[in-house]
């Protein structure tokens, strides 16, 4: 593990109107690791990732990218990626690649195992293939930090595993992956470090071992249960009357 960080968040807060969705998030993302953000629905995962990408402006605190200086410092797969109908998978990637002088679409498609669908129109891709295309888009131009918002959502077990393996491959010596997921088993298998969000705050963060020993449980599910308790009801920030 290295002590270099690629991203530093300091007291980040975000509110929509009167609802505080994130409060006082301070965390540092080390370079070269796969970091997973987990937490119940509505805990602020997507908001946090969007704030890091710059898609939302935080209402407080600071977010600073501290990685190497490149053309495209951060790559991003949104929770619900949009692609234009009428374009093939390869054409779609060619567009993004042309913006950063990135790799050829074929090479990108091969990295996510989608080369067979290169000539297929995006509107005819299945949910899983769209997700893979989105991941290929996120790594265009080799950004040092790749952010994937629920990359395995809607994917079958094999594909989910494949996507996490791909993410783990992307995370290497000088590339960091920050992803959110509800699949605790896969997170356990692949993540180097976990950030647990609850009600817009960092409830815990660290390596799997530190979390397990701190909460006296051997699984991530145990950690989450210890923090969140009953999750059969969405707790809504600002929603308590």
């Amino acid at each position: 593990m290295s002590d270099r960080s690629v991203l530093r968040l300091d007291g980040v807060a975000k509110s929509f109107g009167t609802v505080d969705v994130l409060s006082d998030i301070s965390v540092s993302i080390p370079a070269g690791e796969l970091v997973a953000v987990i937490g119940p629905n509505g805990s602020g995962k997507t908001t946090l990732l969007r704030a890091i990408v710059g898609d939302l402006r935080p209402t407080g605190g600071s977010i600073s990218y501290t990685g190497p200086d490149t053309n495209r410092p951060i790559g991003y797969l949104p929770q619900r990626p949009t692609f234009r109908s009428g374009f093939t998978a390869a054409e779609t990637l060619a567009f993004y690649s042309a913006l950063v002088d990135g790799a050829a679409p074929e090479i990108l498609l091969e990295r996510v195992g989608l080369e067979a669908a290169a000539g297929r129109n995006v509107e005819n891709l299945s949910g899983g293939m769209r997700q893979l295309l989105g991941i290929a888009q996120a790594i265009v131009g080799d950004p040092p930090l790749v952010i994937l918002d629920e990359p395995a959502s809607g994917l079958d077990p094999n594909m989910s595993e494949y996507v996490f393996e791909t993410a783990a491959e992307i995370a290497s010596e000088d590339r960091t992956v920050l992803l959110s997921s509800h699949d605790l088993t896969l997170v356990e298998e692949t993540a180097d470090r976990v950030v647990v969000l609850h009600q817009g705050r960092v409830a815990a963060s660290g390596t799997l071992e530190t979390l397990s020993s701190r909460f006296g449980t051997d699984s991530l599910r145990g950690v989450l249960n210890a923090i969140v308790g009953d999750t059969a009801r969405v707790s809504v920030l600002g929603g308590e009357q």
Binding site: P40, N41, G154, H182, D230, T231, A232
Partner: peptide, 30 residues
């Protein structure tokens, strides 16, 4: 899809509750 583990369990319970009142539930899931 996209629900946390606790909510997922709850949703499957809801599906089961629906069948107890005689409805048929057809769902897809990973």
């Amino acid at each position: 899809s996209g629900l946390d583990p606790g909510m997922s369990v709850r949703i499957f319970e809801v599906a089961e509750e629906l069948t107890e009142t005689g409805a048929a539930v057809l769902l897809s899931s990973h």
